[in-house]
Amino acid sequence: MARDKYTKKMPDAVDYYRRSFLKRLGVTTAAAVGATYAHGAWGGKSLADAFSDFFQQHYQRMTAEELQETLSRIERKAQQQYGTGITCTDTPPLEGVVFGYAINISKCKGYRDCVEACAEENNLPSDIRYIHVLEMDEGSMNLELADRYYEHETVPVEGKYYLPVQCMQCDNPPCVKACPVEATWMDSDGIVVVDYDWCIGCRYCMAACPYSARFFNWTRPDLPADRINPDTNYIGNRPRPVGVVEKCHFCTQRTRKGRQPACQEACPTGARIFGNLLDPNSEIRYVLENKAVFRLKEDLGTEPKFWYFSDR
C-alpha cells in the first residue's frame, strides 16, 4: 500500500524507460556471466548476487517480485558472509499508527540494559550503540556536561540523573532533507528508516542530525554467527553492508508486528513508554496529556516524537 503511494510519484513512461534500461543492462551482463556461480570473489558472494546487488532498485521502487528476490538474496548473503541462517521479511508500516516514545527520567537509573538489548536485537556491530545514556548533573540540562562513558560500581550515582538519547524519529527530520539520494525517509508510521542498499555513505545526514542518532559502518559489521538475531526485516535489523549509515528505527521488525521495541522490553524500571500517538487511549497519549513533558532541542523545529517526563 505504502509502496503504491511512492511509486506513483514517478510518471509511468519514465518508470518504463528506467526499468527497461536497467533490465537491459542486467540481462546483458547476466548473459555474459552465464550460468557460472563463482564463489570467493565479490566479497563472499556469488557473481550473480554481486551483480544483482549492484543494480538493486530503491526499496520504494521495487515491485513485489523484485522485493522477494532481494529478500532471499539478503538471506543467502547472510549465510555466505556470516555463516548463519536468517529470515528477512518486508514490514510495511501499519495503517492508522504513528509511533511515539516517552522516557520517564525519574525512573531511568542508568543501567544501560536498553543499550545492550538494542544491540543484540538489531545486530549492531561492536562499535555502534543506538542509545546514548547520558549521565547528567542534577540541576542542569547542559549536554556539554553529560558523560556517556560513565563507569561506576553501582548506578544511579548521587547528584546525577540519566538521560537516554536515541533517534527521536523527528516529524520534521533534518536527516531526510539532507540525503542526496532519498535513501532515508519517514514512513507513514512516523519512523525514519534507511534503505541500507541505496545509501551511498556520504554521511551528510550524520552532519544534519542534532541528536547524534546516526551511525556509519566504517567497516563490515563484525557479527559473530552465534550472536546474530535471525529474525530480521529489510528496513530494520538485517545485517548491514559496509559503508552505509544506520540508525534506531524503533525496532520496526518488532513494533510493526505489534510488539514492543527491544529497549522497552529490556528496561528493568519501566521508564520507557511506547505506543501509538493516534490512539487517544494509548499510554503514550496519557503521558503527553497528563505529565509535564519536554523534548530535546525542541527549539530546532525538528518535532521529535520522543518525549521525556518525570514523576517528581
Binding site: G110, Y111, S126, D137, H152, G159, T219
Partner: peptide
C-alpha cells in the same frame, strides 16, 4: 542501585578520549 552494563564503545581502531568536563 546496581552495576551498569558496559561503557559504550568507540569506533574500531580508535581509542576512547578522556575529555570529560568538570562537573
Amino acid at each position: 542501585p546496581r552495576q551498569p552494563r558496559p561503557q559504550p564503545p568507540v569506533r574500531i581502531g580508535l581509542e576512547r578520549q578522556e575529555n570529560h568536563p568538570p562537573a
